[in-house]
């Protein structure tokens, strides 16, 4: 298990102060703010948050694939120490797919229905790696076997494959140019538990086989327990907590993380109760001042309305909450004033 604080190795990916805005009907809406994290080669990190919290936006920004109405308004992304041109589509091309690759959210339902899957996997190999048609087909067969589909099945059309098989095809496509980092955006959200377990197992196996760094995006915290080293929790466009999987589950610090864990039904807990998090997450148009979670937070204090709490580092990870580190008496009085 890697310690996020240990700076001995240079990270393969470093995201620093990343900020993205969407333009919507003339106004510019801050969507993600101050997103900073590092990932080591071969590490598996989960990015967890409710829908609308900015997970996909973060992934797209890193891969330089933001839609035209989005703008990177701050921060940078470094791959092996070099700054990536994330706001320049053409300049990003040599990096995308061969260094950083994305399995897009919902893309398994967007495969071209009229082409055999082998062709759809071979095409990016031809375009990106300049392979001949035969070489690309050979590579595609290899990739299919890698994700657990027999090469013969490559003749199938997308509709002839189950959801799990189509997701394997998407993973094969993401691996075509041998990237070192794969971002999986909700790769199991549309699948049932059996298929989900199979896909997570596949990603874990590929990770150690190819020494892949993995960013697994999900809204379901329970998914990450068995296949990630570290979890980052996102709320309303900001990281609010970051720590090892074991630590996040055993000892969550941020009130949002605590409530997220409590809202997962857990038979092993023995009691048939869930504690729903009251209210809804804030929309882009109505982001409150200070901590965005305070309207739903059981421990909100007056200070939470004043300023966004910093994502502070502590021995085991990072957390953005005025409760951490615990305040001394005098400070508490001040916060409640």
């Amino acid at each position: 298990m890697k310690n996020p604080c240990q700076q001995a190795k240079a990270p393969i990916l470093a995201v620093e102060g990343l900020a993205v805005d969407y333009r919507l009907r003339g106004s510019s809406l801050p969507t993600i703010r101050d997103v900073s994290f590092e990932i080591q080669a071969g590490e598996a990190v989960a990015l967890v948050g409710e829908s609308g919290s900015g997970k996909t936006t973060t992934a797209m920004a890193i891969a330089g694939l933001l839609p035209p109405n989005a703008a990177v308004s701050g921060g940078e992304v470094r791959y092996r120490g070099d700054r990536l041109p994330i706001d320049d589509d053409a300049a990003m091309r040599p990096h995308r797919w061969s260094e950083i690759s994305v399995v897009f959210q919902g893309a398994m339902n967007a495969l071209n229905p009229v082409h055999r899957i082998i062709k759809q996997i071979a095409e990016p190999c031809q375009l990106q790696l300049g392979m001949s048609r035969d070489e690309a087909i050979a590579r595609a067969r290899e990739l299919l076997e890698l994700v657990g589909i027999s090469a013969e099945r490559g003749r199938a059309y997308p509709h002839e494959l189950s959801g799990g098989m189509r997701q394997r095809v998407m993973i094969a496509m993401a691996l075509a140019c041998s990237p070192s980092i794969v971002i999986g955006d909700e790769p199991t959200t549309a699948l049932d538990v059996i298929t989900q377990a199979q896909i997570l197992k596949l990603l874990t196996a590929l990770r150690s086989q190819l020494n892949l760094a993995l960013i697994l995006i999900t809204h379901d915290l329970s998914v990450v327990a068995e296949c990630c080293d570290r979890v980052m929790i996102m709320y309303a466009g900001r990281l609010v907590e970051d720590g090892s999987v074991a630590d996040i589950f055993a000892n969550p610090k941020h009130p949002y993380t605590k409530l997220l864990i409590e809202s997962i039904p857990n038979p092993e807990h023995g009691k048939r109760m869930v504690r729903p998090i009251p209210g809804d997450p804030p929309t882009l148009q109505h982001r409150p001042s200070g901590c965005a979670f305070r309207s739903r937070c059981p421990s909100a204090m007056p200070v939470c309305a004043t300023e966004v709490p910093n994502l502070k580092r502590w021995e085991q990870g990072r957390v953005a909450c005025y409760l951490h580190p615990p305040m001394k008496h005098e400070e508490k009085a001040l916060a409640n004033a």
Partner: peptide, 9 residues
């Protein structure tokens, strides 16, 4: 989302 799921249940 998990948090909303609990409300509906």
């Amino acid at each position: 989302d998990v948090s909303i799921r609990a409300q509906i249940l």
